[in-house]
C-alpha cells in the first residue's frame, strides 16, 4: 500500500470532503498558506471563498463557524495552535457544545474545530498544550485525536460528515509521520478504539502522540514485559468496551496522556475502569501525564511532559519489577 505523511492524510481528507460536499469550507488564520502544511494547495483547488484567510480573530472564526453550521454549512474552523482555543472558549465550549440540546434539537451544529496540539518542541505553555480535558469537560463536543496517518484521514472525513461539533486535534510531532493510507475512500467510525499492539502483561491506554511514545516503549521492553497499547482514537465518544476487554485480560492498566495530570483523561478513564472492571484489576490504575504546572519551554519542558522513561517506570512499578533503563529516555523533535 502507498505511504503518505500524517499532514498529507489531513490534507487529503479536507480535499475529498470539499469535493464531495460543497457546503464544506475552511475558515482560519493563514490557511491559504498553511502554518502546518495541512491546508496546502486547497485554495488553488477550491478558491478563496472556500479556503478563507480570516483576520486574527479566534472568537470571530469559531463563532462564525457556529453560525454558518447552524445555517446549513459544514465549516472547518482552523484554530492553528490548539492553545488558541483558550481565546474562544465561549464559542467552542458554550455555544457549539450546547446549541443543539438547549434548542430542543431543532438546530444542528455540524462543524469541525481543527487545531494542532502538543509539545515536545520547547515552545512553552501557549504553543504546546493539549486541551483535551477542557473539551471533554463540556459535553456536546466530540473529540478526535488521531495517532497515525490512516486514522488522521479516516477520522477527519467522519468528523466533517458528523452532524455535531467535533474537536479534531492533530499532533504537531506527528506531522512528518509516514504510514499506509489506501488510495480508495474510507472513513473510520467514532467510538471504535484500535488495539495498536497486542500484549498480555499490562494495558496502556493512549491517544495521539502518546501512542507513538507507548509503542516505542513497548517495543523496547519486548521480551521482558508484554505491553498492550489501546488507542481510543476518539475520547468522545469513548469505546470503553475495548479498554475493559483488555483490562480483563492483563489486569493492569496505565492511562498515558499528554494533558495536565490533574482532572485529566487518566483520571476519567481510570475511574471508569475502576467502576466497571474493579474485580479484574490486579493493581490500582496508574496515570502518567503532564506535571501540574504551566508547560515550561526550553530544556525544562521535559520535566513537565510525559517521557518514555516515565512510562517505562510506571510499567515496571506496576508489575513490581526492577526499573528498566531505556536507550532514549525523552521524546520529541524541535519544530522550528
Amino acid at each position: 500500500m502507498r505511504e503518505i505523511l500524517y499532514l498529507q492524510a489531513i490534507n487529503e481528507a479536507l480535499a475529498e470532503e470539499m469535493s464531495r460536499d460543497e457546503t464544506v469550507f475552511i475558515i482560519g488564520e493563514s490557511v491559504q498558506g498553511s502554518t502546518f502544511n495541512t491546508t496546502v494547495g486547497l485554495v488553488q483547488r477550491f478558491g478563496p471563498d472556500r479556503v478563507m484567510d480570516a483576520p486574527i480573530s479566534e472568537n470571530g472564526i469559531a463563532g462564525a463557524a457556529v453560525g454558518a453550521a447552524t445555517a446549513g454549512y459544514r465549516p472547518v474552523a482552523d484554530l492553528m495552535f490548539g492553545d488558541f482555543i483558550y481565546c474562544c472558549m465561549d464559542e467552542v465550549l458554550l455555544k457549539a457544545a450546547q446549541w443543539h440540546m438547549l434548542h430542543a434539537e431543532k438546530v444542528n451544529v455540524p462543524l469541525v474545530f481543527k487545531a494542532a496540539i502538543g509539545g515536545y518542541s520547547g515552545l512553552c505553555n501557549e504553543h504546546s498544550r493539549c486541551p483535551e480535558a477542557v473539551v471533554l469537560h463540556h459535553p456536546g463536543l466530540k473529540l478526535v485525536l488521531p495517532s497515525d496517518p490512516y486514522d488522521a484521514k479516516g477520522l477527519l472525513k467522519t468528523a466533517i460528515r458528523d452532524n455535531n461539533p467535533v474537536c479534531y486535534f492533530y499532533h504537531k510531532q506527528l506531522l512528518p509521520m509516514t504510514g499506509e493510507v489506501p488510495e480508495e475512500e474510507y472513513t473510520i467510525p467514532f467510538g471504535v478504539a484500535d488495539v495498536k499492539r497486542e500484549g498480555t502483561d499490562v494495558t496502556v491506554v493512549a491517544t495521539s502522540f502518546q501512542v507513538s511514545l507507548a509503542l516505542g516503549v513497548a517495543a523496547e521492553m519486548e521480551g521482558k514485559v508484554s505491553v498492550e497499547v489501546i488507542d481510543p482514537r476518539t475520547l468522545e465518544p469513548l469505546d470503553l468496551d475495548t479498554i475493559l476487554e483488555s483490562v480483563r485480560k492483563t489486569g493492569r492498566v496505565i492511562v498515558l496522556d499528554e494533558d495536565t495530570l490533574r482532572c485529566g483523561i487518566g483520571a476519567e478513564i481510570g475511574m471508569q475502569i475502576m467502576e466497571n472492571a474493579f474485580d479484574f484489576l490486579d493493581a490500582p490504575v496508574k496515570r502518567v501525564g503532564a506535571a501540574n504546572m504551566p508547560i515550561p519551554g526550553g530544556v525544562l519542558e521535559k520535566t513537565c511532559l510525559p517521557q518514555p522513561q516515565d512510562l517505562a517506570n510506571a510499567i515496571t512499578d506496576l508489575l513490581g519489577m526492577d526499573r528498566f533503563e531505556l536507550a532514549v529516555q525523552t521524546a520529541g523533535v524541535k519544530l522550528l
Binding site: G122, L123, C124, N125, P296, G297, G298, V299, L300
Partner: peptide
Amino acid sequence: CGKITGSCKGITGFH
C-alpha cells in the same frame, strides 16, 4: 538560549 541566566531563568525560552 534556555539558560538559567535568562530573563525568566530559561523557563519560557522567549519571554
